[in-house]
Write a protein that binds this DNA or RNA. Structure first.
Length: 667
RNA sequence: GCCGGCGUAGCACAGCGGUAGUGCAGCGGUUUUGUAAACCGAAGGUCGGGAGUUCGAUCCUCUCCGCCGGCACCA
């Protein structure tokens, strides 16, 4: 008799089994129906093929399709089914990889003629056939040689490359589903039928082999799958909802901004969008007034300055160069001014120049220079995306020049400010990641060691002192060419993550530009420079605000706060009086005196997402009251004009001012 | 930049080898209205730019530009 092992079941029962018994045998031994509904098992919490022989004592759980842990298997199996379907339909198509991703899976194929959207329904149909065949997934271990020659014979060049890339000490696992077989790490469910029908192919896209733009481009087919149809439907519905709050769509509908062909990646801010933009700047300006000096540096500067900073060398492809139009058109004309300027892609060199102007003492430090700096970067055409990725944008930028001793305190101070700003905009979940030295960089390793050590220490403090609001991590090799940085990522109302803030420690630019201060010993000292942006790009941040609120802005940000609508023209004069009173109290109010029914106006202003609609008729005029209707509610509230203004002005007070008011009131 | 798709009136969309329609908005009139669309009328477009094929191109081909979905990139 074989030696035995002991398995612990979820109910706590321990039972002995012969070594090498499979999960399937155990499940089948308990009951045929258990075996039937089990798609995989977990040994000590690790998901495994049900057919795996068990070789040691463990906790065993049987996983059915509805188990949350099965979702990944369903998606992964679905990717295999997709690959089989594609190869059956389109012989000669090469397979590469097909991983599970957030919300679904994809599979990358190589085919002379890339797939298009029209191919998806056909492929889906074939997938349903493959699933209906319900072939078991069977695992085999192959030698490297066998796998390599197998794929070579089939003309699967990419798979050959994958086989070669697997470390020599690892075994090669092949999963067969009927006649179709693929190199795969596993695990899989018991058969293709377990994938079910709650799947959908979503889109096709190009993707570079191994994520490398110098390598061939493959066709990626994205799909998603769920255990049950209702979950798939809910997911599709959610995508639809997300599309409705797309800032590009809302920007058009709400008349906030537009783009046009002549200015790719640059924003035409309309009055309403610009109102929000200015409100954002005003807020940020109030937040920095105490500690920073706000400056404004030139938009174009001689290219030599950018050579000194290193940007010209590292980022030339992404910079706009500027010459006189005459010189541009007549590059050979030596009598013309052929000087080349760069449209600034960053504010730091400008701020260094301001720092350098005049002798600085150690007593002056830290010097914090802020600018709502408009920068231009020539982003790749394919990178442009509404307000989220543009070629001209405004940074809430600042540079702190300080001593090394002051550095950590400055970083923590910046962190406090950032967290406070994010809270004011309703973002409470923040992830801060330390991005360490990249391959392409300037400065000595000693410098980097030092800078990273300081940031690491600060990172630990941030997490510890945040009371759980900050989670931290490390992005190896993701730092800037001149220094390591923190990246602040916010999670919005619908769970999407946005990288906004950044704090960068820089020992290099001050040196390159020869910036110094006079130390207490009378000697010249080099300051440390900290680059920081809180919301990053104001354009982008507004895009995030638009999407996370789906256009239903908090009152203080709403471009139009109040619309006053008379019921009939008899109340026009009163409506104007109400509007004037609101305007006088700083509210953004407007009277709608058009000859339209109240129904029409309510509908129109509701669709325009105006937060407050006020209707006034004879009744209100006689009593100096207003009838208030709030966006998102059908309720009508009658109140005195004075009360209404008092409550709206309070609500429209920006969060920072509200805090100050409350502090005052609290004594 | 790369792969695929798309580009028709301010917006949302039809259409198609014989130079274009619908709805909403806008404009003119009628209507004075109590909380999500009153009625009537007239008007509005070198069908993204350029070139080619054709007797004839919004439609087919090429090319450029832009946008969309991804990939790559993001100081």
């Amino acid at each position: 008799m074989d030696a035995s092992l002991s398995l612990t079941f979820p109910d706590g029962a321990k039972r002995p089994f012969p070594i090498g018994i499979t999960g399937a045998a155990i499940a089948g031994g308990i009951s045929p129906s258990l075996l039937k509904r089990t798609v995989a098992m977990a040994l000590d919490g690790e998901v495994r093929d049900l057919s795996d022989p068990i070789t040691a004592d463990a906790r065993i759980e049987f996983i059915n399709r509805e188990d949350p842990r099965a979702l990944e298997l369903i998606r992964h199996d679905c990717a295999h089914v997709l690959a089989e379907a594609v190869q059956e339909l389109f012989p000669g198509t090469q397979v590469t990889i097909g991983p599970v991703i957030e919300n679904g899976f994809f599979y990358d194929f190589h085919r002379e003629q890339p797939f298009t959207l029209d191919d998806l329904p056909v492929i889906e149909k074939k997938m349903r056939e493959v699933i209906a065949r319900d072939r078991p997934f069977t695992k085999q271990e192959w030698s490297r040689y066998k796998a390599r020659s197998f794929f070579e014979t089939k003309g699967e060049a990419f798979k050959v490359e994958l086989v070669d890339a697997i470390p020599a000490d690892q075994t090669l696992k092949m999963y067969a589903q009927g006649d179709w077989i693929d190199l795969c790490r596993g695990p899989h469910m018991t058969s293709t039928g377990k994938v079910g029908n709650a799947f959908k192919l979503m889109k096709v896209a190009g993707a570079y082999w191994r994520g490398d733009s110098s390598k061939p481009m493959l066709t990626r087919i994205y799909g998603t799958a769920f255990a049950r149809q209702e979950e798939l439907d809910a997911h599709l519905k959610q995508i639809e909802e997300a599309e409705k709050r797309d800032h590009r769509k809302l920007g058009r509908e709400m008349d906030l901004f537009h783009f046009q062909d002549e200015g790719p990646g640059t924003v035409f801010w309309h009055a309403k969008g610009w109102t929000m933009f200015q409100e954002l700047i005003a807020y940020n300006r109030r937040r920095i007034r105490r500690d920073y000096e706000e400056v404004n540096a030139p938009q174009i500067l001689d290219k030599s300055l950018w050579e000194t900073s290193g940007h010209w060398g590292w980022y030339q492809e992404n910079m706009f160069a500027v010459k006189s139009a005459h010189a541009f058109m007549n590059p050979k004309d030596e009598s013309a001014d052929q000087k080349v300027f760069a449209l600034k892609p960053m504010n730091c060199p400008g701020h260094v120049q301001i720092f350098k102007h005049g002798l600085k003492s150690y007593r002056d430090l830290p010097i914090r220079i802020a600018e709502f700096g408009i920068v231009h970067r020539y982003e790749a055409s394919g990178a442009l995306h509404g307000l989220m990725r543009v070629r001209g944008f405004t940074q809430d930028d600042a540079h702190v020049f300080c001593t090394e001793e002051q550095l950590e305190a400055e970083i923590m101070k910046i962190n406090d400010l950032m967290m406070s700003v994010y809270r004011d905009f309703g973002f409470t979940e923040v992830v801060v990641k330390l991005a360490t030295r990249p391959e392409k960089r300037v400065g000595t390793d000693a410098m980097w060691d030092h800078a990273e050590a300081i940031l690491r220490k600060a990172l630990g403090r941030m997490e510890a002192e945040s009371g759980g609001a900050i989670k931290t991590g490390v992005n190896e090799g993701e730092g800037t060419f001149y220094g390591p940085k923190f990246e602040y990522t916010l999670r919005d109302a619908i769970g999407r993550d946005w990288q906004c803030g950044t704090t960068q420690v820089d020992f290099n630019l001050p040196e390159r530009f020869g910036a110094f201060y006079i130390g207490s010993d009378g000697e010249k000292k080099q300051p440390v420079m900290v680059h920081r942006a809180i919301v990053g790009s104001l354009e982008r941040f507004l895009g995030i605000i638009i999407e996370s609120h789906a256009g239903h802005f908090p009152l203080w940000l709403a471009p139009e706060q109040v619309l006053v609508c008379p019921i009939t023209s008899d109340a026009d004069a009163y409506a104007e009086r109400v509007t004037e009173a609101m305007l006088a109290h700083g509210l953004r109010a407007r009277a709608d005196l058009r000859n339209e029914k109240i129904n029409y106006k309510v509908r129109e202003h509701s669709l325009a997402k105006v937060p407050v609609i006020i209707a006034v008729g004879k009744r209100e005029a006689d009593e100096t009251t207003v009838t208030v209707r709030r966006l998102g509610s059908q309720a009508q509230t009658v109140m005195s004009l004075a009360d209404c203004i008092a409550s709206l002005t309070d609500e429209a007070t920006p969060p920072d001012l509200k805090r100050a008011k409350a502090a005052l009131a609290g004594g």
